[in-house]
């Protein structure tokens, strides 16, 4: 039998497959379809201190081999997540979950993480310093090594769980940002978030998304993601979680070969709700076909 398990910042997970934040809610929709305990873990919907409605609609645009979104971090706020979503999740998911956190100031990141790191169900916090959709904050942390280091340092002080920092690809040199996060104490990095894009509506001559710009995801971004994972994994000692357009077990293996310790699957969940289940089921045969052994490689 093929051993799919991997170590992610000191926590052993059964396989490297992790549904990415924003494509898996808080697990409930998918738990109706299959036993989500088969996942390595999953990264829940990006959570902020305050509840947020997010951006006006339309928030979604289709692209060749992908889509753009400008949801704008809609979420019920950290208190609601702790009081309602985590207890509900406990009924359906019996593994440590990855808590994805966003914020608009260092203080906001810190107090949100402070609450979540104390929750027994939370295994890791994934710090989203890269969401391209939100005006006035989100972008700046992830695009400047000093700002990234500042927020990572501040959050690390309150953390009792591993901290994984999720990076934006919308930068000149992602390696310098990853290194700044590592130096500031990050236990891991995950990349890439969506690529900033824009589409025009031919009928109106105006941008298709109400937010004007949106984040491109899906198979279209996969080679960009693999390239960045490869570069970052060579440059840092901490685990790298690879994501960006991963849709098949072969894509997962490609990310692992590029240096990822684990792999997140995002947009694929939205078009095929069984995507992660199929990937995990396909993975042993793909490992065998390409003679991949997690423990050796």
């Amino acid at each position: 039998m093929v051993d799919l398990s991997v170590d992610l910042c000191g926590i052993r997970i059964d396989n490297p497959v992790i549904p990415a934040s924003g494509t898996f809610g808080y697990g409930q929709e998918f738990a109706k379809l299959y036993d989500i305990n088969m996942l390595g873990t999953f990264s829940f919907k990006g959570t902020t201190w305050e509840p947020r409605f997010g951006n006006p609609t339309p928030r979604i645009a289709e692209c060749p081999a992908g889509m753009m979104n400008a949801v704008g971090l809609q979420n019920p706020g950290v208190h609601h997540v702790i009081e309602h979503e985590l207890p509900a999740l406990k009924e359906i998911f019996h593994k440590p979950v990855m808590a994805n956190v966003s914020g608009f100031s260092v203080e906001e990141y810190v107090k949100t993480c402070e609450l979540l790191t104390e929750q027994e169900q939370v295994g890791w916090i994934e710090l989203n310093i890269s969401c391209p959709n939100v005006h006035g904050g989100g972008m700046s942390f992830g695009t400047d090594p000093r700002a990234a280091a500042e927020v990572v340092k501040a959050v690390k002080k309150v953390m009792t769980r591993p901290l994984i920092v999720k990076l934006t690809p919308n930068v000149t040199d992602i390696v310098s940002i990853a290194k700044a996060c590592e130096d500031a104490g990050a236990d891991g990095v995950s990349l890439i978030n969506t690529l900033l894009g824009l589409r025009m509506n031919l009928k109106t001559g105006k941008p298709l998304l109400a937010n004007t710009t949106g984040g491109l995801s899906g198979p279209a971004v996969f080679p960009v993601a693999v390239r960045m994972v490869y570069q970052v994994a060579k440059a840092v000692q901490i685990p790298v979680v690879g994501l960006g357009g991963v849709s098949t077990a072969e894509d997962v293996l490609e990310m692992l070969m590029a240096g990822a310790a684990a792999v997140e699957v995002g947009t694929a969940n939205l078009v095929d709700p069984y995507a992660c289940k199929k990937i995990i089921e396909d993975l042993p045969a793909v490992y065998e076909k390409y003679h991949w052994n997690n423990t050796v490689n």
Partner: peptide, 14 residues
């Protein structure tokens, strides 16, 4: 509304 997934996961049509 313009939808991403159609089953409640993406928050595209809120």
């Amino acid at each position: 509304e313009r939808m991403g997934c159609g089953f409640g996961a993406c928050m595209g049509c809120s």
